[in-house]
């Protein structure tokens, strides 16, 4: 038998998918889901608890703001222009640029981390080869048990069958 990437179960409504994810959640499987639109609460059911993106945005934002501030300080010291009797390092005037750099730093760090964490860009993925998977962009909701070292095809198949999906589909690796 060929190596498997995952075993898919097909459902016809988000509620049934959520219910299935809830029932498999505590059983130690590595789960993944594919839906045509974001389904509220699904991430929690799959045990998704990755906060790399918010953390990266905090660090990126702070770095951006600091660099923006230092850039203006350096520019003003290097090329002093005395305006309106204000000090050379006029903090209120610097804050707008700092804010913009904060947003830029946070957004770049957030998008970059999101891409890396999702291993994107990626042109091909094993699930694309599975039968009927194109319906996941239309009106079908898929729950996958991913194959890992301890993966048992029969046990996974039974666990999915107990959820009464419309179909169970093998995804070759």
């Amino acid at each position: 038998m060929a190596e498997l990437h995952a075993l898919l179960a097909e459902f016809d409504s988000p509620e049934r998918l959520i219910d299935a994810a809830r029932r498999l959640g505590g059983q130690g499987w590595r789960l993944e889901a594919f839906t045509p639109f974001p389904v509220e609460g699904l991430g929690r059911m799959l045990g998704f608890a990755d906060n790399r993106v918010p953390r990266a945005m905090l660090i990126g934002g702070a770095t951006g703001a600091l660099l923006g501030f230092l850039m203006q300080v350096a520019t003003n010291l290097d090329y002093p222009l005395w305006i309106g009797g204000r000090p050379l390092i006029a903090v209120p005037a610097f804050l707008l640029i700092c804010f913009e750099m904060l947003v830029l730093g946070a957004v770049l760090a957030g998008i970059g981390t999101m891409l890396i964490a999702n291993r994107l860009p990626r042109l091909h993925h094993p699930v694309f080869a599975a039968d009927r998977f194109d319906l996941s962009a239309d009106d079908r909701f898929f729950l996958a048990i991913l194959a890992d070292a301890a993966f048992d095809r029969d046990a996974a198949g039974k666990a999915l069958a107990a959820l009464h999906p419309r179909a169970i589909i093998e995804v070759p690796a």
């Binding site: 309106g84 009797g85 204000r86 209120p92 005037a93 804050l95 707008l96």
Partner: peptide, 12 residues
């Protein structure tokens, strides 16, 4: 709060 201060501070 900062913006109102900044707009008055800017022209002085």
């Amino acid at each position: 709060q900062f913006l109102t201060f900044f707009i008055l501070w800017s022209p002085g």
